[in-house]
Every structure is written in structure tokens, then in C-alpha cells.
């Protein structure tokens, strides 16, 4: 993974994902949805590799087909019947079309969340919201750190108990459940005691006496500001084009999809700019790198 976009300040990355996911869910226009899906797929390939994306497709494509069929079977709105089911309900062209685009929307959102999970690591989320709410973010960051810590402790207690024949994998079923509960119980006692000792120690070192500072690797620079302004600009232009009525999609009772001409094209271009921002960003970085290298 060599992605410059994910090295932006958390605020810029977060703003990008909020913008892109919200707009994808908001406007059910085929062109916008396909732009979003393509961009999301491309970004997943950059972040996790084409092979991982191939694996995702294995469940995404059947899901896509399943959702469109399901909508057509259960939703009978629309004026163009294709054929009739045995119970007399019509399967309409509109329901099929809508189901298809709804599943495209959902796939795009799922893919964007895959990117979100790679880019927005837990430390970035904490850096972002830590200042907003210091107590809650302390709670979250401690809990996040306790999970692997408890895991290790559970394993070591279990290993010690296994030496006296009380391990979680020894004996019959009932015995094993009992032993496992004992291991958990010991771990909980230890966890509570040691964390409260830590709390006392924190208190005696002055926690809560002044505003808490927190370490983070991220600095908000010009390029983060530029990214956020670009996002806001693209969202504004897209929204303006949709509100002005140029980009319009309706599925019931009959399918009406409009979006030809200058203004809609502008809106779609702005949306594409937003969705492909990571790729554009990477391309720019690659270009700069090439130029720097050839100058040496």
C-alpha cells in the first residue's frame, strides 16, 4: 500500500469520507452511483490490492443480484409489468431498475467503508474526537488498549492453570466451561485491580488538574486545508446541480432519469472530482516524485 491520501490529517480524511458516503446515499442517480462505485472500487484496489477486491466481488456480485431480484419480487409499484407471478402480482420494470440501482448504491457504500476502515485507523479517530470530549476519548483509547492486553493475560493465566490440570481445554465439557469461567474470573479480578492502581497513579500525577494534552502524529497543513476546500467545493457544485433540477432520477411510478446538457455534466464532473480525489492526490504525488527524481 502506497497511498498518499491516507497520510492526510484525520480531519481532512474524515471530511472526505463523510462527504462521499453521504452524497452516495443521498442521490440515487445512475451516473452518480456508477462514478461512486468505480471510484470506491479503485480506491479499495489501491489500499488493499486487486486480489482483495476480487475476493470482495465474490460476495458483492451475488448480493447485488439478490437485492435487485428481491426488490422486484416484493415491490409491485410501477406502471410497466414485465410478467406476472403466480399470486397475481406484477414484476415491474421500475422495481427491477430501482432494485438494481439501490444495490449499486449499497455496494458503493460498503466499498467506501472498507476504505474508511483502512484509512481511519483508531488513533486517527481518537486524535479527531479526543479534543472534543477528553473523558470519553480516554475511555475509548484505554478500552482499545485493554483488549489485546486482556487477551495476553487470559492466555498466560490459562497456561499456568493448565499445569495443575485446570486449563480451559482440559476435562469434559462441563469441566472445560467451568475452567474457562475461572480463567475469565481471575483475569477480571486482575484487570480491575491493576487498572484502579493505574487510575490512582494517574491521579497522583495530576490527571484532571489541567487540560490534558495528547500526542498525535498529525499536523494540519496547507494540503489538508486544500483537500477540505476541494471537498466542500465539489459537494456544493453537485448539490447545486441536483437542486436546480438538472440531475434528476425518479423510479416510481415510471422511470425518469435526466441528466444531459451542460449543468448536469458540471455537477457530475464535480462529483467525480470528489470521488476520485484519492486517486488524483496519489497521481499528483507520483508526478512530484518523478520530477524530483529526474532533477537529481
Amino acid at each position: 500500500m502506497n497511498d498518499a491520501f491516507s497520510q492526510l490529517h484525520p480531519a481532512a480524511s474524515f471530511a472526505f469520507f463523510v462527504a462521499v458516503i453521504t452524497l452516495t446515499m443521498l442521490y440515487m442517480h445512475p451516473v452518480l452511483l456508477i462514478i461512486s462505485l468505480a471510484a470506491a472500487a479503485g480506491y479499495v484496489c489501491i489500499l488493499k490490492g486487486a486480489r482483495h477486491f476480487g475476493k470482495t466481488l465474490i460476495y458483492l456480485v451475488p448480493f447485488l443480484i439478490f437485492m435487485s431480484v428481491l426488490n422486484a419480487l416484493f415491490n409491485h409499484a410501477g406502471v410497466t409489468p414485465l410478467f406476472y407471478l403466480s399470486n397475481g402480482n406484477a414484476v415491474t420494470k421500475e422495481a427491477l431498475t430501482f432494485g438494481f440501482y439501490a444495490s449499486v448504491m449499497l455496494s458503493a457504500v460498503i466499498l467506501w467503508f472498507e476504505c474508511f476502515n483502512v484509512v481511519m485507523t483508531s488513533d486517527k479517530l481518537l486524535c479527531l474526537f479526543g479534543r472534543l470530549s477528553p473523558s470519553v476519548s480516554l475511555l475509548l483509547s484505554m478500552a482499545l488498549r485493554f483488549v489485546p492486553k486482556f487477551g495476553r493475560k487470559i492466555r498466560s493465566i490459562d497456561a499456568a492453570r493448565a499445569q495443575i490440570g485446570q486449563g480451559s481445554a482440559q476435562g469434559g465439557f462441563i469441566r472445560r466451561v467451568k475452567n474457562s469461567m475461572k480463567v475469565l474470573s481471575v483475569t477480571l479480578t486482575w484487570a480491575l485491580e491493576s487498572s484502579l492502581t493505574a487510575a490512582n497513579s494517574m491521579k497522583s500525577r495530576g490527571y484532571g488538574a489541567a487540560r490534558r494534552t495528547s500526542f498525535s502524529l498529525y499536523r494540519f497543513t496547507v494540503r489538508d486545508a486544500v483537500t477540505m476546500v476541494l471537498c466542500a467545493f465539489a459537494v456544493g457544485v453537485t448539490a447545486a446541480c441536483v437542486v436546480s433540477g438538472g440531475i434528476y432520477a425518479r423510479y416510481y411510478p415510471s422511470v425518469i432519469i435526466s441528466g444531459f446538457g451542460g449543468i448536469p455534466a458540471l455537477g457530475m464532473a464535480a462529483f467525480a472530482l470528489l470521488c476520485f480525489l484519492p486517486q488524483l492526490f496519489d497521481a499528483k504525488e507520483a508526478l512530484v516524485w518523478r520530477r524530483l527524481r529526474s532533477a537529481i
Binding site: 475511555l139 475509548l140 485493554f146 484487570a191 487498572s195 493505574a198 487510575a199 494517574m202 491521579k203 484532571g208
Partner: peptide
């Protein structure tokens, strides 16, 4: 209090 935060963090974890 720090104690409360830490305790809830343990239960969350």
C-alpha cells in the same frame, strides 16, 4: 473521576 473512566474502560474491553 479517573477511576470511573478506567473502570468503565475495563468493562468495555
Amino acid at each position: 473521576q479517573v477511576r470511573e473512566i478506567v473502570l468503565l474502560a475495563v468493562m468495555t474491553a
